[in-house]
Design a protein around this nucleic acid. Sequence first.
DNA 1: TTCCACTACTCAGCGTTACTTGGTACCAGT
DNA 2: ACTGGTACCAAGTAACGCTGAGTAGTGGAA
Lengths: 115, 115
Amino acid sequence: MGKQATEMLKGVLEGIVLAILSRRPAYGYEITAWLRDQGFTDIAEGTIYALLVRIEQRGLVDVEKVPSEKGPPRKVYTLGPQGRQQLDEFWRTWSFLAERLEQLHNPNDEGEATQ
Amino acid sequence: MGKQATEMLKGVLEGIVLAILSRRPAYGYEITAWLRDQGFTDIAEGTIYALLVRIEQRGLVDVEKVPSEKGPPRKVYTLGPQGRQQLDEFWRTWSFLAERLEQLHNPNDEGEATQ
DNA sequence: TTCCACTACTCAGCGTTACTTGGTACCAGT
DNA sequence: ACTGGTACCAAGTAACGCTGAGTAGTGGAA
C-alpha cells in the first residue's frame, strides 16, 4: 500500500479500532497484530497506541490492566456506551461516503442536469 | 455531517475530484457546487481550490483558461494520464478499505484463529 | 551470567490535509 | 454607482498518522 493509504486512513482507523472493540475487548499489541494480519501492513505500532490514548481520554472506552505471562501488563480496552454511539456515527458517515463513491465508480447515471 | 467527516475526507476528497474529472473536464466553482449538491455541504470552497492547485502541481491534470460570460475566467481542469493512474491507485486503496470495513460491519465470519 | 528476542506500552517531532477567514476581480441589473 | 452572483486565491490553524527512539518485563540461548 502506498502512502496514499496513509491519508485515507485518517478518521477511518479510529472507526476500525472501535469496530474491533465492539466484538470483544482487546489490548494494543493484539489489535496491531490483527491489523497487520488483515493486510494493514503499513500501520505503525505507535499509531495504534496513540489512537487508544485518544479514545480513552474521550471516554469512548474503559481500560483495565491485566497482567501478562510474557511481558508488561496489558491494557485491555472495552467499548463503552459513548464508544458505541461514536461507532454508529462512524458507520453513518462511512455509508454516506461509500454510497457517493460507488456512484462515482459506476458512471451509469449522472446526477447532473445543468449543461 | 459532523466533524468526524472532516478527517474521513482526508485523502478521499482528492480521489473524488479525480473521479469527477475522469468523466469530463470541470472548473473549481462547478466542482464545489456539484459536491454541495451531492450532500457534501461542509466542504469549504477554499478546500477545493487548494486541492486543485496541488493536483495541478503534481501534474495530474491539465489546465486551460476559458473566458466566462458571468465573471472571471474559469480554470478548466482535464484529467491527464498521470491523473488517471493516480485515480486507479485510489480505487485500489479504496476497495481494500471498503472490503475490510464491510467485513467488520457484518461480523458473521471472524478471520482469526489464534486465541 | 550475559545477551537476545519477544511482548507491551510511551513519547517528541514532523508532514499532509481540510478548515477558517478574508481578499481580488469580472459582469449584469437596478 | 452599487449590489449580488460568479470565479479564483492566500495565510494561518487543527487533527491525525508516521517516524524513530525509548522503557520494561519475561524466557531461552550462549
